[in-house]
Amino acid sequence: MLKRRKRLPCLSGLVLLAGALLVAPVLAMPKRVMSLNLCTDQLAMTLAEPGQLVSVSFLAREPSLSMLHEKAQGYPVNHGLAEEVFLENPDLVVTGTYSLHNTTALLKRLGFHVEEFSFAQTLETIPGEIRRMGALIGQEKKAETIANDFDSELKAIAARQCGKHPTMIAYDQNGIASGRGTLADSVMQAAGFVNLAAEMGIVGVAPFPLEQVIAAQPDVINMSTPQTAPTLGEYVPRHPAIAALPQTRVGAFVPEGSLSCGTPLVIKAVRALAALRSTMAPCPESAAP
């Protein structure tokens, strides 16, 4: 009896300790996460477990911007308003640093846990962003797998390239090109293309005269998928002058929305361009891996 009595508190202490160890990560894992930014939407929808993500931004349902627009139909949407966050009262709010400064500042003042993602526009930083989101919402294992897959696929794509680098210009609405420091530039490089706009000194997303596109005669001109609602700006990348370039491949070569965010889904754009490159500069039989 005595022995038992002595052992009991000891046992219960162990149980408590074990329980605490088990519970600790579960407690730290936010049960209700709200995402206010198109790009955090993509990361959160990829990583969160069912029921964990209470809402995503309304842009997540926009097919031209969001790769996961179908999945987003299954979530309620918010419009990035502080009032919506206040009513929902989530454990964690994730958003981007470039948008909604006022909302973010207000939410922090109200005591919400707000995490901002800067989304540097290069492929190298993406695995870090995936791991960070994983750690924040308690999905480290899933994040680690996705980040590693992303890294290894990029390396595999780089290893499969041979021959001369074809040239490319990403040309869009109203004659805008993607220059140095853009996600599109990083994707073009990873897929083994030379971004002529960056070579010619364009930084960021900037106007690029149509005449210079023609004069540069790139091997590929990539444009975005046309929208259902028309604009005059859409006629610029579809100008007859571009169609008249004899050696240039012109078209929407990357999946719609795949270049809008630095998330693991951008790998689909790299894959598509790498496939295009392999048809343009195929490896000789012996060198094929």
Partner: peptide, 22 residues
């Protein structure tokens, strides 16, 4: 317009341009 790029074209319609016409 449901197309977010349409609002960039306000300047064209109000101030006019002959740029990139085919």
């Amino acid at each position: 317009s449901p197309n977010p790029f349409a609002s960039y074209e306000i300047i064209f319609w109000l101030l006019g341009s002959l740029k990139d016409r085919s």
